[in-house]
Design a protein around this nucleic acid. Structure first.
Lengths: 210, 210
DNA sequence: GTCTATATAGGGATAGAC
DNA sequence: GTCTATCCCTATATAGAC
């Protein structure tokens, strides 16, 4: 029994890169074999159910990454501003400042998107909930927090679409730039977070900062 | 010579539906044949260069639709508020309130996206320019107008991504709901628009035929 | 302008040796 | 666990009759 050429994490990482570059339908077994350096038959050893299973595994792997690097920080007990900065830092890494696609967004647009529907729904919902949590903890009213969380996700996903369409890498950074202040506008001063509870409601302001 | 079964517009319309549903890679000649009721050979009569030419034609056709129903209203001499409402109405139609994908966004994510790069860049740039024009005409400073136009496009495209991912048709409408007031916040009262001329004349635009 | 039939390549997936 | 060789199907595209 020859020794494995790749660890499971290495394998998933290369699979992820390939799917993010070519999309679900655009990723062929030949491209995966090339990207991993494995023969097709070896890939079926790891994923007996083939391409669908590879995509599902890669999506779960990516979702777990978000859970660890985006959602968990948002739900931590650090000051809300710091949590949101942490989210944006992680996103800048994951998307390489807009150069790389969002795997969930890509799979949500695929012809075979039904395969991923449940996973994607939960993914976005957990993201929204985690961000809204950070915002309510900052002192914003719950409905304001939810609306702003929704807007933020829209702008993040939209910036990725536009960055691709316009082939402009500055676009994602520009979006992230003003995001923190916009999200926290009107909230209690976040530097006081660690010294008081988030019970103080903020003025319900809908200001969107340019 | 048998009579054509479809006009060119009917053909393009059905091609467009198919590409928007399955994406570029997910759309096969078999699916197109089924959607149009034509045999594959007939399709090659209209598009000798095959699937790539069909996609390019459909994209140009869609871009022209935006030119007529979105960009032109934004650049008209009506009051700015009315122009933006007109844009959002047209978008709600085109995206069926979020149920249908944006063809340019879809093609921008495709594995073969290089085929469409120039067209897509121009498309988004003209959209941004047209919206920023309406906003400067409302009395907003040019840099504010450009930033808000950018944000609006991000939210529109992002709402489409999220609507798909969460399978929630309310999402697009909610986004469009507060868009007008948000875009025009702090602008001169738009009801005065018809009594004065725009301070900056619209620039000539390179139109692309469908 | 449409069709049936077909050519050729590439898709996903498998068998079986090592 | 990896490989080579191969299976079958679908993909795009074409030929030629009507």
């Amino acid at each position: 029994m020859p020794t494995p050429l790749l660890t499971r994490d290495q394998l998933l990482s290369r699979l992820c890169d390939t799917f993010r570059h070519y999309g679900y339908e655009g990723t062929s077994m030949a491209r995966i074999a090339e990207a991993t350096g494995l023969g097709k038959a070896s890939l079926y050893h790891y994923f007996p159910e083939g391409k669908q299973q590879m995509a599902a595994s890669v999506l779960n792997w990516a979702v777990q990454w978000f859970e660890d690097h985006v959602f968990a920080p948002l739900k931590s007990t650090h000051p809300p501003r710091q949590r949101i900065v942490s989210m944006l830092d992680s996103l800048s890494d994951y998307y390489a400042l807009g150069q790389c696609a969002c795997l969930p967004a890509l799979f949500g647009m695929a012809a075979e998107r039904d395969l991923f529907a449940d996973t994607l729904h939960d993914f976005y919902q957990r993201w929204l909930d985690a961000l809204a949590q950070a915002l309510t903890d900052s002192g914003l009213a719950r409905d304001i927090a939810q609306r702003r969380a929704q807007e933020a996700l829209e702008r993040i996903q939209g910036a990725l679409v536009l960055a691709r369409g316009m082939q402009d890498t500055r676009l994602f950074g520009d979006m992230a730039q003003g995001m923190v202040d916009h999200l926290l506008a009107g909230a209690g001063r976040s530097t006081l977070w660690t010294t008081r509870m988030p019970s103080i409601p903020a003025r319900p302001v809908i200001t969107r900062v340019g």
